[in-house]
């Protein structure tokens, strides 16, 4: 493979575009320049750190450290899911619901891909496993966050409709059906949309990366297809788990709507 190695100077030249943007922000009084520079600085530090971590992990070749890193990534994703919710469940549920759904679906799909399709040797090889997990996790996170948010706001907004059904003796699964379906649809739509736009509107990042690294386009396409299917599967299972478990938490054995398990609305 022949790929062009970038020097720090090349990156510095690209960074001047950001400086230019910041200057424009000052000139137009957008007051965005500080945020822009802080975000850029964070990006540089975070990515450099990640490069270091990955480099170390690749050299270590340890199943333990690779899985610890994977867990760390998923726990962070859980925090992000929680932060994106307008309404939250009380107690540990607000963090635990999204996190456990992602741990479940992303682990399942990543291990499935590593053991049956990509098959590196050993199967947990960090160089393959972590980037794969990262891509699946990033998309699952978006879906799970949207699904949970829709479920919780939907349950509160549709309260009188849900309770009318419960009062008429409908079981909770039926009474909650509309909200559950709507939440699952909301969580899945970004993935469906990205599958239909891919290749027409956008050349996906991973495929771009492989092509830049000298991989033949058709080989890069095959990888991209694989990833997209994994992402769709991971998002689907994650949203399903989060929405069903969440709906269970908002109801109880006696088929009651338990909005008392939601925290008071913050806005």
């Amino acid at each position: 493979m022949n790929f062009i190695i970038l020097s720090p100077v090349d990156i510095a030249i690209a960074a001047t575009l950001l400086i230019l943007n910041a200057a424009l922000s000052i000139f137009l009084r957008l007051r965005l320049e500080k945020q822009m520079l802080v975000a850029a600085a964070r990006m540089v530090v975070q990515l450099l750190l990640m490069g270091l971590v990955l480099k170390t992990l690749f050299n270590l070749d340890s199943a333990l450290f690779t899985s610890l890193t994977a867990l760390f990534m998923m726990l962070f994703a859980g925090r992000e899911v929680m932060a994106r919710q307008k309404r939250r469940l009380k107690g540990w549920w607000s963090y635990g619901l999204g996190t456990s759904s992602m741990v479940f679906s992303c682990t399942l799909v990543t291990v499935f891909a590593l053991t049956t399709q990509v098959r590196p040797d050993p199967w947990y090889e960090a160089r393959i496993a972590l980037p794969l997990l990262g891509m699946i996790l990033g998309n699952t996170m978006t879906g799970v966050a949207l699904g949970i948010d829709r479920l919780l706001t939907g349950a509160a907004a549709e309260r009188s409709a849900i309770e009318a059904r419960l009062a008429l003796g409908h079981p909770r699964a039926e009474a909650f059906g509309n909200v559950i379906r709507e939440a699952m649809r909301t969580g899945m739509i970004p993935t469906v949309n990205s599958m239909s736009a891919i290749g027409l509107v956008s050349i996906p990042g991973m495929m771009t990366g492989q092509i830049l690294a000298g991989v033949a386009p058709m080989e890069a396409v095959k990888y991209q297809l694989l990833i997209m299917f994994l992402i769709a599967g991971g998002t689907g299972f994650g949203v399903l788990a989060a929405v069903l478990v969440g709906a269970g938490r908002l109801t109880d054995q006696r088929h009651r709507l338990r909005l008392d398990r939601l925290r008071a609305s913050s806005d």
């Binding site: 549709e158 309260r159 009188s160 409709a161 849900i162 309770e163 009318a164 059904r165 419960l166 009062a167 008429l168 003796g169 409908h170 079981p171 509309n178 054995q253 006696r254 088929h255 009651r256």
Partner: peptide
């Protein structure tokens, strides 16, 4: 008895009606 069965026998009508 399961709660839905009880509620079909002892049925509550809220002041504000709900529609799904």
């Amino acid at each position: 008895m399961p709660a839905p069965q009880w509620r079909r026998a002892v049925c509550y009508l809220a002041a504000e009606s709900g529609w799904w």
